[in-house]
Design a protein around this nucleic acid. Structure first.
Lengths: 136, 136
DNA sequence: CTTTTATCCTATAGTTTTAGTAGATTAATT
DNA sequence: AATTAATCTACTAAAACTATAGGATAAAAG
């Protein structure tokens, strides 16, 4: 299941992309427009900022804004930051690889074989979608 | 993330498929061979039996066995029983559809648009893989 | 320089899901 | 009757998820 965090984060990014201008948008406005708990959204936007997707400005007239053009924001990177690994098991993860404790030989593992395909198909989707694609 | 339940269930099915004959295999043997907690595996095999994948026999010489040929066991059905919906959000689920509380219009939702593609790509993988494919 | 506005940041609490454990029961075989 | 192995219910510990609380910080307006 997609976490609420990721869902809300994506919606917030999409909202910022539709607003268009690089003018800061307040958390409260995003939260209200997308029906998200403001405090929860706050922490999500913070991680998006810390990971280079958003800029922010404090005080009156402040808020969050996209740093890059929506067409340059790939879903692979957004998903990795918000949701974590794209792979469903660590042993097929490109960026978060870990060996399974219980599995003596990955080459022989049926789960490995299946999840490799799932990872590749998901990757293809995320690589083919930028933020711009989602709002058009 | 793939749950341990699904992972172990898949491994157990794969093991039963490699053993081949329709002779019952004991939980203890599967658990040992696949490095799985026996009691946990017990409950997993039970749900696989209740959902028509396995047959069982009690007493000496008893155990679990595949009811169908591995080539007739689709990953779509296995995944739905063990892991639940294939879709990452209920609003794009074929078998477990639910409307989002917060989303006024699915057609306009960026998350919906993205997750539809992810679901379709995952479905294609699961539909193209039977248990037989995983052990070859 | 004070007030207001809005982000920043840490800690924590409540709920749900996951991953197992315990122990008694039932059915089949010897 | 004894043994073997699945069946079933209930329970628990740990982790993850979904927030919430409350103060600190920074920018702008007056």
């Amino acid at each position: 299941m997609l976490s609420k965090k990721t869902k809300y984060g994506l919606k917030a990014l999409a909202y910022l992309a539709t607003v268009g201008d690089k003018e800061p948008v307040q958390i409260a406005e995003i939260a209200k427009h997308e029906n998200i708990s403001q405090k929860f959204l706050e922490s999500i936007l913070l991680t998006l900022r810390r990971n280079g997707f958003l800029g922010s400005k404090k005080g009156k007239g402040g808020g969050y804004y996209l740093i890059k053009d929506p067409s340059e924001i790939l879903m692979t990177s957004v998903m990795r930051v918000l949701e974590g690994p794209i792979a469903m098991v660590p042993c097929v993860s490109l960026n978060f690889y870990e060996k399974c404790d219980d599995c003596p030989d990955e080459g022989e593992c049926s789960v490995h074989k299946l999840m490799l395909q799932v990872r590749d198909s998901a990757l293809e989707v995320y690589r083919n979608n930028t933020l711009a694609d989602l709002i058009s």
